[in-house]
Structure formats: structure tokens, C-alpha cells
């Protein structure tokens, strides 16, 4: 049995220039360099990417779904943040 377990890394891939890096999945690796090499083999075997980020999973702070109410629900009744909230006559163009 191994003494040490390789930590978990999250993999983000930019599929082409002009697009953002997107979460692709995760993998285990001993260090960042190996995580990058493994990510290349596991997630870009068919030209899926032009750039890879790897982040050790323990460094990610995530919001808790239990707090979704207080975090995200307030946005639901703020319709005035959307352009369709404002009544304008049809004659107004380019707006």
C-alpha cells in the first residue's frame, strides 16, 4: 500500500482562442506539472483544447447549496435590472 495519495486537481480547458477556460473534470497527480501532463492525455486526446489550467481541488472554495436562497433568490425580484422592465414607445429605435 502506498504511503501517500496523489492529491486531486481540477482541470480547465480553453477549447479555442476567444473562448474561456471551462471546467472539464478532475484527476489525481503528484504535482502541478504532472497534473498538466495527465490533463493533456486525459482531456485533450482529440484536439479539444489549446490551453489547460490545473488547480488543486483543495484550493477551491465553493458556495454551499444550502445558502442558495440567501445568495441567489434576491436577484429574482429585481426585474428592474433587465432592459425589458422599462416601457418605451415602439417608435424609439436603436435602444
Amino acid at each position: 500500500m502506498s504511503k501517500n495519495n496523489w492529491p486531486l486537481w481540477e482541470v480547465f480547458v480553453r477549447s479555442k482562442n476567444g473562448l474561456e477556460h471551462r471546467h472539464f473534470g478532475s484527476l489525481h497527480a503528484a504535482d502541478a506539472e504532472m497534473a498538466l501532463e495527465n490533463a493533456r492525455d486525459v482531456y485533450t486526446r482529440r484536439s479539444e483544447g489549446v490551453s489547460i489550467w490545473v488547480v488543486e481541488s483543495s484550493n477551491i472554495t465553493a458556495s454551499n447549496p444550502e445558502n442558495n436562497g440567501e445568495l441567489f433568490e434576491p436577484a429574482a425580484d429585481k426585474v428592474y435590472r433587465h432592459p425589458t422592465f422599462y416601457d418605451l414607445p415602439d417608435e424609439v429605435k436603436h435602444m
Partner: peptide, 12 residues
Amino acid sequence: GTWVRDAAMAYA
């Protein structure tokens, strides 16, 4: 493969 995984971790 145990020694390979251990060696990689020790090196890291």
C-alpha cells in the same frame, strides 16, 4: 506501481 506513485510523490 506502488513504488512509482510513492517516488512521484516524494519527488513532488
